[in-house]
C-alpha cells in the first residue's frame, strides 16, 4: 500500500510542469523516505533528479518500496483536472501496482474526484552521480535566470557562462549578432533578489541554450536558483521545493570541436 497526500495540488502541478517537457516517462521510486525520480532526456544530454521527502507530505505511507513507471504527459493531463487549492492524494494498492489513483478534494470537501492512471514498465538505468566540489556556486533569482535564458536563446544555440569573483556573465552570438548579460554579486545575501557567488577558481563553460530553457520551467517552484560549475563537467541547476525537497538538473557541457 502506498498513499501520499499534499494539502495543495499546486506544488505537484508545478513539479510536473518542471519535468514534463524534458522527459516523456520516468520511474517514480517510492520508499519510506519519500519519492525520487531520476531520468535522462532522450538525447542523454541532460538529467533530472527530483526528490520529495516523506516529511513534506501531509500524510505519507509506504509499506514496501515500489517503482511506478509514469507517462508524464498522462499525469499532467490528470493534474490539470485539479484546482490549485485541492488536496491531492496519490494511492497505489499493490506492492507491484499496474495503476495509480489520484484523488482531488476541494477545500470545502464538497467536490471529490478520482482519476486512475495506468502505469508502464520502464527499463531505465540509474546513473551514479559523483559528489563534486564545484569551482563556482552561484545563487541568483530564478526569474532573472529564466529571463536571461529566454532573451539569449534568440541569438544563438550555445550559451557561454563565465563566473569569476566579480560576477557571472552569460554570452551568446549568432547570425543576428551577439548578447551579453553580466550580474554582479549583491551585498545583501538574504534577499530573494540576491546574487551570491562562492568561488574556488573561475570557470567558463558552454551549454545548449535549449536545455537551460527547459530547466527554467521550474521557476515557479522557487524564488532562487543555484548553479554549480566546474570546468569540463556537467552543470548542476538546482531549485528547492519549499522544505520538502528539490529538483536538480544536470547538463553536459559543449566543447570546442
Amino acid at each position: 500500500m502506498f498513499e501520499a497526500s499534499l494539502a495543495q495540488s499546486a506544488i505537484l502541478k508545478k513539479v510536473l510542469d518542471a519535468i514534463k517537457d524534458l522527459l516523456n516517462e520516468a520511474n517514480f521510486e517510492c520508499t519510506d523516505d519519500g519519492i525520487k525520480v531520476q531520468a535522462m532526456d532522450n538525447s542523454h544530454v541532460s538529467l533530472v533528479s527530483l526528490e520529495l521527502r516523506s516529511d513534506g507530505f501531509e500524510k505519507y505511507r509506504c509499506d514496501r518500496n515500489l517503482s511506478m513507471g509514469v507517462n508524464l504527459a498522462s499525469m499532467a493531463k490528470i493534474m490539470r483536472c485539479s484546482s490549485n487549492s485541492d488536496k491531492v492524494t496519490i494511492k497505489a494498492q499493490d506492492d507491484n501496482p499496474d495503476k495509480v489513483s489520484f484523488i482531488f478534494e476541494s477545500s470545502n470537501q464538497e467536490r471529490i474526484s478520482d482519476y486512475e492512471m495506468k502505469l508502464m514498465d520502464i527499463d531505465a538505468d540509474q546513473l551514479g552521480i559523483p559528489d563534486t566540489e564545484y569551482s563556482c556556486v552561484v545563487k541568483m533569482p530564478s526569474a532573472e535566470f529564466a529571463r536571461i535564458c529566454k532573451d539569449l536563446n534568440q541569438f544563438g544555440e550555445s550559451l557561454v557562462i563565465s563566473c569569476s569573483k566579480e560576477g557571472i556573465k552569460f554570452s551568446t552570438s549568432g547570425d543576428l549578432g551577439s548578447a551579453n548579460v553580466k550580474l554582479a554579486q549583491t551585498t545583501d545575501a538574504d534577499k530573494d533578489d540576491a546574487v551570491t557567488i562562492e568561488m574556488r577558481s573561475p570557470v567558463t563553460l558552454t551549454f545548449a541554450c535549449r536545455y537551460l530553457n527547459h530547466f527554467t520551467k521550474a521557476t515557479p517552484l522557487s524564488s532562487q536558483v543555484q548553479l554549480s560549475m566546474s570546468d569540463e563537467i556537467p552543470l548542476l541547476v538546482e531549485y528547492r521545493i519549499g522544505d520538502m525537497g528539490c529538483i536538480k538538473y544536470y547538463l553536459a557541457p559543449k566543447i570546442d570541436d
Partner: peptide, 14 residues
C-alpha cells in the same frame, strides 16, 4: 563549432 558531450561521459551507469 562546438561538440555536445553526453552525460554518460561523466556519470557511471548502474
Amino acid at each position: 563549432n562546438s561538440l555536445q558531450l553526453e552525460l554518460l561521459t561523466f556519470f557511471c551507469q548502474h
